[in-house]
Computed example of a mutant assay.
Amino acid sequence: MEKIFLAALQITSGLGYAGIERLMQHFNTAANIWQATEEEILESKCLSEILCKKLFRHRQSFDIEKAANSWNKSNIKLLSVFANDYPESLKNIHNPPAILFCRGKLDNKRKLAIVGSRKFSVYGKSIAQNLSADLAAQEFTVVSGAAHGIDTFAHRGALSTGTTVAVLGCGINIAYPRENKKLLDEIAEKGAVISEYEPQAQPLAGFFPARNRIISGMSLGTIVVEAATRSGSLITAEMALSEGRDVFAVPGSIYSEQSAGCNHLIQQGAKLVTCAQDVYNEYDTSVQSKQNEQQINFNSDEEKKVYEMLSYDQPLSLDEIIYKLRSDVSNISFVLLQMKLRGLVEETVLGTYVRSVKEIV
């Protein structure tokens, strides 16, 4: 029950890690804190009088037994900063969450964060998927925020070859954005979905910057794939720097607003990333990227020609493909359909085509 009491304390409005730590040093356990009288807590001088009253109002309204039963029925795990199952790297940041609510299981693999803008380009999407797939294939766990855009593609890429962790700016029983519910369920099955907020907490604007410190705090380094100059991803990069973690950035066109933030990070000293090997070189020179080892099973010469013509960042329409190949219309349409089903190409919302994550033999 100790973790339940600690979770209940964390949910108290205004009572952050620093306050909990002071109380733990004085009362030794979260259970003792929860059961202490108002006079005992005031006399400890761990909290201000105002915060002490907030804690007592919370204790009167919060049914700790009901919460414990509900979390247990939902298979929600509680990870305490004072226990061994808590991410070691996260313990070392300035303001770690006292409790992490978790669906799934956190592994002990080295972790790298991949973040980026909610507004993305075909270029950014392809980079996020391919880079995360390559990193996950080499036993790195990819950490991201499950937001629409680059975060989503980072999770999907990682799931195709390994594991990933989603850090939410809401409760772990809330699917946000809604279209990512299926993705979050899959992440919970193969990796972990975590949050410092109680399971039913709705997403609030202030939760997301706080969430970013967990993303960077769990990770050896943070890779920014695509970000404008005011992107929240840059907050994550700044937090990583403040904790002495590595920051990487994928360069983009100088004419693209979506790459302006990444290009600025590189100007400021972030490590430039063009492939997964650039990241491996920072941690283990013996690791060789599998990106160049990927082979594709082409079912026909037409498939090979179409794939070689397409790129990850320059979409082509069906008419452009037909014109360049000088081939029959119906045949190329069929070839593209088969390649889409196998995940070799992707059709954009505009009806154009680009390469997708490569099929590995």
Rank of each mutant, 00 (worst) to 15 (best):
T236C: 14
T236Y: 10
T236R: 08
A237T: 08
A237I: 10
A237P: 09
A237D: 09
A237Q: 11
E238A: 14
E238P: 02
M239C: 05
M239Q: 15
A240F: 08
L241D: 06
S242M: 15
E243K: 12
E243C: 14
E243F: 11
G244W: 14
R245P: 14
R245N: 13
D246P: 14
D246N: 15
D246H: 15
V247R: 04
F248C: 14
F248N: 07
F248D: 04
A249F: 13
A249I: 13
V250F: 13
V250R: 01
V250I: 15
V250H: 03
P251N: 11
P251E: 11
G252H: 04
G252T: 06
G252D: 09
S253I: 11
I254V: 15
Y255R: 06
Y255E: 13
S256T: 01
S256Q: 00
E257N: 13
E257A: 15
E257M: 13
E257T: 13
Q258N: 02
S259W: 02
S259M: 01
S259P: 02
A260T: 06
A260V: 02
G261F: 01
G261A: 02
C262T: 06
C262H: 00
C262R: 00
C262G: 01
N263D: 03
H264N: 09
H264Q: 14
H264V: 01
L265R: 03
L265I: 04
L265F: 06
L265S: 05
Q267T: 09
Q267L: 13
Q268E: 15
Q268F: 08
G269P: 05
G269Q: 03
A270M: 09
A270I: 04
A270D: 04
A270L: 07
K271V: 05
K271E: 04
L272G: 00
L272S: 01
L272D: 01
V273P: 05
V273C: 10
V273E: 03
T274Y: 12
T274E: 03
T274V: 12
T274R: 12
C275N: 15
A276Q: 10
Q277M: 08
D278G: 08
D278K: 03
D278L: 10
V279P: 06
V279C: 12
V279Y: 07
Y280E: 11
Y280V: 09
Y280H: 14
Y280K: 07
Y280R: 06
N281P: 00
E282I: 13
E282S: 15
E282T: 15
Y283S: 05
Y283P: 07
Y283A: 05
D284Y: 08
D284R: 02
T285L: 11
T285R: 08
T285P: 00
T285E: 09
T285N: 05
T285C: 05
S286E: 14
S286D: 09
S286M: 06
V287H: 03
V287M: 13
Q288H: 12
Q288Y: 05
S289F: 07
S289V: 06
K290E: 06
K290Q: 09
K290V: 07
Q291T: 10
Q291G: 08
Q291F: 14
Q291P: 00
N292T: 09
N292P: 00
N292Q: 07
N292L: 10
E293F: 11
Q294G: 00
Q294M: 11
Q295A: 00
Q295E: 08
Q295M: 02
I296L: 10
I296R: 01
I296P: 02
